[in-house]
């Protein structure tokens, strides 16, 4: 499997995902500077977390117009898997590769903590290593993760099973008490209609190493390696 990590000015989880990919792939992912639209053909494109362009306009809005994103969009439309985490999810939403938008957290504060996610389905290349309905522990670290989509869009997402993860309690309960940011229907991650693009606010790459406090993120990268190798 070959993977590329797109580095935008202000990306800061690029190394973290590089480490997680390296661990699961057993080889080096390619780090692609955002001005380099002409990067190698790869099996997976990752958009890392961070604060691209300082999040100064709207999170992800400027990166979505970056030269490299034209290429990412074209390849995604051809079916190349794309994973956007945190700021990467915001860029995907701003690019229109996944539906919806990420608004300021309902609590108006940055939130960094481990929380639980319910894996909605495991028939995807991203989640085959999990059980459907499994509860996993993954951290979030964001200021703007409040997922919103209009009511029609929400219905379509739910009807088409495009919700990838929902925030939940340790016992799997999906409710307001376990919603860290006000996201509609506790949505933590969504697929595009074809299922080859996943955007998620939580950071699976941060819990792939027992020394860091857990390994629940690892199955996502192993799933991708299994599907794309």
């Amino acid at each position: 499997m070959k993977a590329a990590v797109i580095v935008f000015p202000g990306s800061n989880c690029d190394r973290d995902i590089q480490v997680a990919l390296r661990q699961s792939m057993g080889s080096e992912p390619q780090m692609v500077w955002h001005k380099d639209a002409d990067f190698d053909s790869v099996d997976l494109i990752c958009l890392p977390g961070g604060f691209s362009y300082g999040d100064y306009l709207r999170c992800g809005a400027m990166s979505a117009k970056s030269p490299v994103m034209k290429e990412v969009i074209a390849r995604a439309n051809k079916g190349v898997p794309v994973l956007g985490i945190c700021n990467g999810f915001q860029i995907l939403a701003e690019s229109g590769l996944v539906p919806g938008a990420l608004m300021r957290n309902a609590g108006l504060k940055f939130v960094c903590r481990d929380l639980h996610l319910k894996v909605e389905r495991n028939d995807s290349i991203f989640t085959s290593g999990y059980a459907a309905g499994q509860t996993i522990r993954i951290p979030v670290a964001h200021h703007d993760g409040n997922y919103f989509v209009d009511s029609e869009g929400l219905k379509a997402l739910e009807d088409n099973n495009q919700v990838a993860f929902r925030y939940c309690g340790a016992d799997g309960t999906v409710d307001l008490a376990n919603n860290p940011n006000g996201s509609l229907n506790n949505i933590a991650g969504v697929y595009n209609a074809k299922g080859n693009v996943l955007g998620m606010m939580p950071h699976p790459e941060r819990l792939c190493d027992a020394a860091l406090g857990g390994t629940d993120g690892r199955a996502m990268f192993e799933s991708l390696v299994a599907a794309l190798s």
Binding site: N12, D16, C112, R113, R206
Partner: peptide
């Protein structure tokens, strides 16, 4: 306080 700080970025925080 510290939940408003990203204390895990860079992937090497072994004691939060």
């Amino acid at each position: 306080v510290w939940e408003q700080y990203d204390h895990m970025v860079m992937g090497d925080t072994i004691q939060r």
